[in-house]
Simulated scan of single mutants.
Amino acid sequence: MTDKTPAPQVWPTLRARNARELIRFLVDAFGFEQAAVYGDGDRVDHAQLSWPLGGGIMLGSVRDAPDDPWPLPPGSFGAYTVTDDPDALYARAIAAGARLVQDLHDTDYGSREFIVCDPEGNRWSFGTYRGEPVTG
């Protein structure tokens, strides 16, 4: 680990039919930052997209091999992602073609959030709720 290596975190993963297009969409629509993409041609063996507030996701192309150790069906992913500016992110996501599932709204637990789908059908909820503090 170098002094620039992030501390251990949870990195959700997903598979995509068109991983390179999904990467472009996630960067353009949501503001993920492309940290690494490995693979040849249309195939993506591994990609890391970092979230500006910390953490991120990993993804790759779907594989049709019977021995695939990570057989996640494309479009079956869902994540809640913290953002400090849900209104601006909502406008950006809709302008980039994200499919609206639940409009921007305020919750009874103090979050401002919305839900959209990416072109693969994965659900993305963005909001201001950062979770509860860990106690004792």
Rank of each mutant, 00 (worst) to 15 (best):
W70C: 03
A29Q: 13
F32S: 00
A96F: 05
I23Q: 14
L100T: 04
L49F: 00
T81S: 11
Y38F: 11
W70F: 10
S61E: 15
L100H: 11
F25R: 03
Q48K: 09
D106E: 14
D85Q: 13
Y80H: 06
D106Y: 07
F114N: 01
Q102E: 09
D85Y: 13
V134M: 09
N122M: 00
A16C: 08
D85G: 05
S76F: 06
D103T: 10
E120N: 03
R24G: 04
G41N: 07
T83A: 00
D40G: 03
N18K: 11
P86G: 13
G78R: 15
Y129E: 01
D67M: 06
T107E: 10
R15C: 02
V82Y: 15
N122P: 04
E113H: 12
G39K: 00
A7T: 11
L53H: 07
I23M: 05
D3K: 11
C117T: 14
L22F: 07
Q102C: 07
W70G: 00
R20M: 00
F114Q: 05
G60I: 11
E21M: 03
R123E: 10
R63D: 13
L53Q: 12
L89Q: 15
L14M: 05
E120R: 02
P74R: 12
H105S: 00
R20D: 03
V116I: 05
A29T: 03
M1P: 12
V101K: 10
R15A: 02
F30T: 08
R92E: 10
F25A: 07
I57F: 02
V62L: 14
V116D: 10
D84R: 11
P133M: 01
Q48A: 04
D40V: 05
G78K: 15
A19Y: 08
Q34C: 07
R20L: 01
A16L: 01
A35W: 10
R92F: 06
F77N: 13
M1Q: 15
I94C: 05
D3M: 15
P73S: 05
V44W: 00
Q9I: 07
R92H: 06
A65W: 12
G39W: 08
P69I: 02
H105F: 01
L53K: 10
F126R: 12
D108V: 01
G54A: 02
V10C: 03
G31Y: 13
D45W: 03
Y129H: 11
A47K: 00
L59R: 15
S50E: 08
Y129A: 01
E21C: 01
P71N: 09
D3P: 08
N122S: 04
T128S: 09
D45R: 06
I57C: 00
E21V: 04
P86F: 09
R17F: 02
Y80V: 05
R112E: 05
G60A: 15
A95W: 04
G136D: 07
T13M: 10
A47L: 05
Q9C: 04
R92M: 04
R63G: 10
V37M: 12
A96Y: 08
A91K: 15
R20A: 01
G31V: 06
T81K: 12
P6N: 12
G56Y: 06
M1F: 15
S111K: 04
G110T: 10
Q48Y: 10
D42M: 04
I115N: 13
D45N: 09
D87Y: 02
G39D: 04
T128I: 02
E33H: 14
G127H: 04
T107M: 01
A35S: 13
R99L: 03
G31P: 11
S61V: 14
V10K: 12
K4T: 12
G131I: 03
S50D: 10
T83V: 04
